[in-house]
Amino acid sequence: MATRIRPASKKCAVIGGSGFLGQHMVERLLDKGYSVNVFDIRQGLENERVQFFIGDLCSKTDLLSALQGVNVVFHCASPAPSSNNKELFYKVNYTGTRTVIEACKEAGVQKLVLTSSASVVFEGTDIKNGTEDLPYAQRPIDYYTETKILQEKEVLGSNDPENNFLTVAIRPHGIFGPRDPQLVPIMVETAKSGKMKFMIGNGENLVDFTYVENVVHGHILAAEYLQKDSPLCGKAYHITNDEPIPFWTFISQVLVGLNYEAPKYQIPYWLAYYLALLVSLLVFILSPLVTIKPTFTPMRVALAGTYHYYSCERAKKEMGYKPVVSLEKAIEKTVQSYQHLRRAR
């Protein structure tokens, strides 16, 4: 295993530090004694120990002000995948990332740690214990993922040890935890509307759900092990809870923990998928007349009904990764943090 080296300068920047993952990252970095700059389009947290820089990711001038004297940059800025805003996905994930790389090099940043996604290798069919050697998806499940592939290629391709610029990509999967504005709130809203009564498939398909503290831990380990001649240079690493769980078991545990009923009826996977395709076709046909944002899509059916879990062996071997919070404890802590969404009995 590579030697773990703390950067001589413990000054880092978190791009996207006001977001869900970014906030947890900032808090953990401060706990570990790092000096932290946050760059984002808004200030999402109050902390007198953090220097905030508000700006546009695509503006090198804005970025440079946040990167002065910084040794490590954590790039975890990303639009919400559910927004379905293709222009924004491309702007932030691709154009913005290219600008980040340019700004890092100009500012003399030595290390860039990217938050990528395990979905860059997922095409909507089963992946069991997938490794980082899987090829990028030829048919990504959505445009968001397509831009994440472009982003990861750009970051890893810019790794340049000769010029003291080192890059690594962390690929989490199914991030969840306190303050997440997506997974649990959307799940509860769906349950409230009566659309959580059906499970897609037989309920046996295993997936990775990864607690946010474990994702943060993986990022910081990557930064500390990333050095010239280390195996991390220019490579991607899966970071998960290393405890794949049936998709519908996870959903049920969260819902029941918040006093909602678990899904109890089954729809065959093939039927759900073709129904979702039909809905997509109808939305396309009607698009000149009316704007509809369907929640029942082929992509969501694939995520709910297939196996998709990934091996962390490379991260264990090359940077000593192991989850710091078990899945059972993570679900418990997450449910406790959403008491305001609990249904009254």
Rank of each mutant, 00 (worst) to 15 (best):
M199K: 02
F209S: 02
G194S: 08
E162V: 10
G218E: 06
V212R: 01
G218P: 03
E154R: 04
G157M: 11
H173L: 13
K195S: 12
G174I: 00
K197T: 14
F209K: 11
G203H: 02
P178I: 07
A191W: 07
F209M: 15
V215F: 05
I170M: 07
I200P: 02
G194N: 08
H173N: 14
F176M: 03
D180V: 00
Q227V: 07
N205C: 15
H173Q: 14
N159P: 04
S230E: 05
S158Q: 09
F176L: 09
R171S: 07
N214I: 08
V188T: 02
G174P: 02
G177T: 01
N214A: 12
L166C: 10
L221W: 06
K192S: 09
R171L: 15
G218T: 12
N159D: 14
H219L: 06
A191Q: 00
N163W: 03
Y211G: 06
S230V: 09
M199E: 10
M196C: 13
K153Q: 15
L150D: 12
H217P: 03
E152R: 08
P231I: 10
Q227W: 07
H217W: 13
V168P: 01
H217D: 14
E224L: 11
G177R: 03
I186C: 02
K228L: 08
H217T: 13
G201D: 00
L183G: 02
N163M: 05
V184W: 00
H219Y: 08
E162K: 12
M196W: 01
N159C: 15
E162G: 13
Q151P: 04
T167Q: 07
K228D: 14
M196F: 05
Q182P: 00
H217C: 11
I175A: 13
M187Q: 07
L206R: 12
L166G: 01
K195W: 05
G201E: 10
H173D: 08
V215N: 08
M187I: 12
T190G: 06
K228P: 05
E189W: 03
E213K: 15
G218M: 04
V168D: 03
P181G: 09
G174N: 10
E189N: 14
M196P: 00
T190D: 04
A222D: 09
L183M: 13
R171P: 02
Y211D: 04
L166D: 10
S230L: 09
I186G: 01
P231D: 07
S193P: 02
K192D: 07
P172R: 08
G194L: 09
P185D: 09
R171F: 00
R179F: 05
Q182R: 12
V184T: 15
K192G: 05
L226E: 10
M199D: 01
L150R: 15
V155N: 09
V188Y: 03
H217S: 13
V207M: 10
F165H: 06
